[in-house]
């Protein structure tokens, strides 16, 4: 009886965790390799917002973003020098780097990765 109750609670807890994880928008990416260590909030990159405005090929071909979370070592100096996000986030195509909070908008403690209810999760990949 006690065991059944424990299992039920565990399942409920697991379900709640899944619900919480799945509440981000599908394909939202968290970038927190450097941000929090440098005293900034983690960056949230929303794929949905960008793909309305740009096809995948713009960032994943022209700008050189690898199609794998964690495979792109993006630093703020890269961006200021016009690489990666900085190709557009320069005050001409999109908002410039002075608008820190628009990108550095995540909760502290988030791990880098892709969120939003994907159904796969190969070890070490996401």
């Amino acid at each position: 009886m006690v065991l059944v109750v424990i299992i039920r609670w565990w399942l409920l807890l697991a379900a709640l965790m899944v619900t919480t994880m799945a509440s981000a928008e599908y394909a939202d990416v968290i970038l927190n390799r450097y941000a929090e260590k440098e005293g900034m909030r983690p960056v949230i990159f929303p794929h949905w917002f960008h793909r309305i405005r740009f096809r995948c090929k713009v960032c994943h071909n022209e700008l050189g973003f690898e199609m794998r979370v964690g495979a792109n070592d993006v630093t703020m100096s890269d961006i200021i020098d016009g690489r990666f996000c900085g190709m557009c986030h320069n005050g001409e195509v999109a908002w410039s780097v002075e608008n820190c909070d628009l990108c550095h908008s995540g909760k502290n403690g988030l791990k880098s990765g892709i969120f939003g209810g994907h159904q796969t999760g190969g070890p070490g990949h996401w």
Binding site: T20, M21, S23, A24, E25, D28, I30, R41, I44, N99, D101, L102, S105, G106, K107, N108, L110, F115
Partner: peptide, 10 residues
């Protein structure tokens, strides 16, 4: 949504 910081002024 569980990931954005609601205290972020922006």
């Amino acid at each position: 949504d569980g990931i954005h910081d609601p205290d972020n002024p922006a």
